Computed example of a mutant assay.
Amino acid sequence: MPKYFFNVVLNGHSTVDGLGQQFPDDGAARAHAHHLTILLADRCRDPANSFVAVSGLDGRLAFKVPFRLPQSEVPN
């Protein structure tokens, strides 16, 4: 099973995942990254500079999952 690293960039400040986690595929890893954005949403003040960067064992970026504003805060 591939190992993924979930590096969180929140309000422009990054936190590096030094442990990583195993998931069966990119879809499962993407779902986990999305879950992290939900867990951390109350701390997100700058969605344009907030995302989870997911990389593999080789350190290459596999994909990013952005933080999104809650629907109640989306401007009309």
Score class of each variant (00 low, 15 high):
1 M>R: 11
1 M>P: 13
1 M>D: 10
1 M>S: 09
3 K>W: 01
3 K>P: 01
3 K>G: 02
4 Y>H: 03
4 Y>N: 01
4 Y>W: 05
4 Y>I: 04
4 Y>R: 07
6 F>R: 00
6 F>E: 00
6 F>C: 02
7 N>G: 00
7 N>A: 02
8 V>A: 06
8 V>S: 01
9 V>T: 15
9 V>G: 04
10 L>C: 05
10 L>Y: 03
11 N>R: 04
11 N>F: 06
13 H>D: 15
14 S>C: 08
15 T>V: 12
15 T>R: 11
15 T>I: 11
18 G>H: 11
18 G>C: 07
18 G>S: 09
18 G>E: 12
19 L>K: 13
19 L>G: 04
20 G>K: 01
20 G>E: 01
21 Q>I: 02
22 Q>I: 12
23 F>Y: 14
24 P>G: 09
24 P>I: 10
25 D>R: 08
26 D>W: 05
26 D>T: 09
27 G>Y: 00
29 A>C: 08
30 R>P: 07
30 R>E: 13
32 H>E: 12
32 H>K: 07
32 H>N: 13
32 H>G: 00
33 A>T: 02
33 A>M: 04
34 H>I: 07
34 H>T: 14
35 H>R: 13
35 H>M: 07
36 L>K: 03
36 L>C: 04
36 L>Q: 11
37 T>V: 01
37 T>F: 04
39 L>D: 12
39 L>A: 09
40 L>W: 09
41 A>Q: 12
43 R>H: 13
43 R>Q: 14
43 R>I: 03
43 R>K: 14
43 R>C: 11
43 R>L: 14
44 C>K: 02
46 D>F: 04
46 D>G: 00
47 P>A: 07
48 A>G: 10
48 A>W: 05
49 N>A: 11
49 N>Y: 07
49 N>T: 08
49 N>L: 08
49 N>P: 02
50 S>R: 00
50 S>Y: 05
51 F>R: 12
52 V>E: 05
53 A>T: 01
53 A>V: 08
54 V>R: 00
55 S>K: 03
56 G>R: 09
56 G>M: 07
57 L>M: 15
57 L>F: 09
57 L>C: 10
57 L>V: 14
59 G>K: 08
60 R>G: 15
61 L>Q: 13
61 L>S: 06
61 L>D: 01
62 A>E: 13
63 F>E: 06
64 K>I: 10
65 V>E: 15
67 F>A: 07
67 F>V: 06
68 R>V: 09
69 L>Q: 12
70 P>G: 08
72 S>A: 14
73 E>V: 01
75 P>E: 05
75 P>D: 10
